[in-house]
Design a protein around this nucleic acid. Sequence first.
DNA 1: TAAACAATGTTATTCTTTTAACAATAAATA
DNA 2: TATTTATTGTTAAAAGAATAACATTGTTTA
Lengths: 217, 217
Amino acid sequence: MKSLPEKTIERLSVYRRTLLNCLAEGKEYIYSHEIANLHNITAVQVRRDIMLIGYSTTLKKGYNVRALIELIGDILDSPRGLNVAVVGIGNLGRAITAYFRGKRSRLQIVAAFDTDPEKINRVISGVKCYSMNDLQQIINEKQIPVAILTVPPDYAAKVSEALVYSGIKGILNYTSVPVNVPSDVVLENYDMITSLEKVAYYVKQKLGDNSKVSYEE
Amino acid sequence: MKSLPEKTIERLSVYRRTLLNCLAEGKEYIYSHEIANLHNITAVQVRRDIMLIGYSTTLKKGYNVRALIELIGDILDSPRGLNVAVVGIGNLGRAITAYFRGKRSRLQIVAAFDTDPEKINRVISGVKCYSMNDLQQIINEKQIPVAILTVPPDYAAKVSEALVYSGIKGILNYTSVPVNVPSDVVLENYDMITSLEKVAYYVKQKLGDNSKVSYEE
DNA sequence: TAAACAATGTTATTCTTTTAACAATAAATA
DNA sequence: TATTTATTGTTAAAAGAATAACATTGTTTA
């Protein structure tokens, strides 16, 4: 399989969730422009993404929702599922596990880690919490290739090192500190403060355009 | 001011936080390649970003950290700060307010909204929580142009409509549902499930490359 | 059935972003 | 002081992503 553009991968993930909703509402077929409207993008982009994953329909009644979902699954999911750990089970960690709760998904959050003795050995948001000291052991025992990093900023670097050392293959970093990993480990840094500052920047630009008030004095 | 590339805006936000740390450690000057190493990017990209914001140094001792921070502030921040509301103060909402707690920033989270009677009129993570019914009133009274949307998926569409109607200028949407706003409202959709699925996809790819095991049977 | 329409599939173009190439110059060194 | 080195600033090229243009083809309708 030739590799798909990163942005297409992202959109496929979102498409799938929207399509699952459609299916739940009894919708069997969907037009490219309907998918587009649901996501604030153009129908061309939708069609192009769908072309890239090799789906095509001869009908003019839109795409078969079920078939599309399945095909996206073939691309995104690992056949046997993929285990995930949440490292740092504070508010953010719990928010993420909550997202997955009850969802039937090929991604399973199978362990949480924390340093707080109050949390260790308890089940939090449906996930057993282990001591950070047992990181390597549990990751190996449970065969966990992916970790979500939601520890306080000061611990980010140390913990990500430990994760790499424990053999983790992918890290989704939600701390506000960029972390560094060897090139054979997949890394996605996402920074919530940055997104907020970005929105604020564009809002400032717009306000500045419409009324110079805030700059006048 | 000519408008800067979106990616540059994002990086500036991250640079600033890293630079603040450097300053806290007593570092007065920093080389482009040092900034680059901290962020897993190239020095050229750093220099280009810095060129774009119009900073330049005649010294060969690196950039003046203090000056850079200030200049980034001139670009990103509104002179008088910008008020922000968190709409839906569950785990995710609390995680975000916690980020900002104690941070001296030009972005202030000044209100939370929720429907849970247990939360309304209480102070949560340092922020007063109001009833969702008072959205418009409070947004106007407190002059809040930016909202962070962290409500359960089913409420996302309704609440974002209400926000737009209340005169909000920017929405940062963390629900797993894409929302739609008029073109004069700044919108950033960020989907945590998608980022996790993306990491999982690339991990799958890598594992597939190294050992075909998972596809063999 | 023929014409018009509406939808998809694909190539070409444009735009954005990153990377490369290299000129300029302060600082260090022989 | 002349030479080398290290660093910045800037233009040029390449890569990646979105958009536009358009060909194709079921479906509907006169």
